[in-house]
Design a protein around this nucleic acid. Structure first.
Lengths: 151, 151
DNA sequence: TCAAAAGGTACCAGATTAGTACTGATTGCG
DNA sequence: CGCAATCAGTACTAATCTGGTACCTTTTGA
């Protein structure tokens, strides 16, 4: 299905949630409360996002996290990369030299790079700001509507 | 990581292999031999590809499979869709009504559709013919080359 | 009628993921 | 100074998913 990890889904939701209140810092428990994602998971995700430079963290009492950039400047590609590692469709294309024992297959691996580039390019076009638009500006689509097409 | 299933990888390899000899029909055992992919797996994949209309199957003795279209007319998107189901990055976007119990998350699900469309569009640009080019025309890229770059 | 090949279903083992728990490090505040 | 709140990191477990296998049925040409 090509589905991305639930983690990435969470990450985008969390960042979108933070994007709505950029002024103040938010703690992991606050975000867990706001999104409904279990706290340990939120904490882990925030750590990854901070390491990737998408968030700034402030340690100590009254610390917390905040977006390091404007939502328009954060692409979905970056979020995915932060949570799941570099965006690549096959296991064989990055780093690991010889884990695929089948020659005929490996002969084609280089071509997956085209696909990777295409996908990465597409994901870089979509920003965090894009992900917020309809939900918070145009209202949430009615449940009946979602049930038919996309829930 | 965003990696696609090994199945899809196999599928592309198999189809590319078949594309090189469109004249005659090929059987599952032949393809398994040629690609090094275990026979039962090949068989399962061929079935899916045939159901998706990417291949034509001929039952009975001296039967087999053949591509139903020219390699230039088969997109990677189609192959992925045939093997892994419809291309959608989240589990929640197609069909299933209420499997995500978190409201805040679901409020944003509609926006993943943008990402899905972007990715699907990108994958539709890459054809099976594209996947064959360098491997069989320009030669296989050196392992050292791949190890360094090629994200 | 037989054998070869596709079509289908069910199942198992290994790998991966999501989630939890625990411990350590940093910093603001009383 | 020391406590408490918060981030940081590691290790572990349970559950899901994937890749692969086995077995049987159906079709069809010789």
């Amino acid at each position: 299905m090509f589905k991305l990890n639930k983690m990435t889904d969470y990450a985008v939701v969390m960042m979108a949630d933070m994007a709505r209140m950029t002024d103040d810092m938010r703690t992991a428990p606050q975000l867990a409360e706001a999104t409904g994602v279990p706290l340990p998971t939120v904490s882990k995700l925030l750590k990854n996002l901070a390491n990737a430079g998408l968030m700034q963290s402030q340690r100590g009492a009254s610390g917390g996290y905040s977006l390091s950039r404007a939502p328009e400047d954060i692409s979905v590609a970056e979020i995915i990369a932060a949570v799941e590692g570099p965006i690549a469709l096959t296991a064989c294309v990055d780093g690991s030299p010889d884990q695929c024992g089948v020659e005929t297959i490996c002969a084609m691996r280089g071509n997956w790079d085209k696909v990777n580039r295409a996908v990465r390019g597409a994901l870089e076009q979509v920003t965090l700001a894009d992900m917020m638009v309809s939900a918070f500006e145009f209202g949430i689509p009615a449940p009946a509507e979602r049930a038919g097409a996309a829930s």
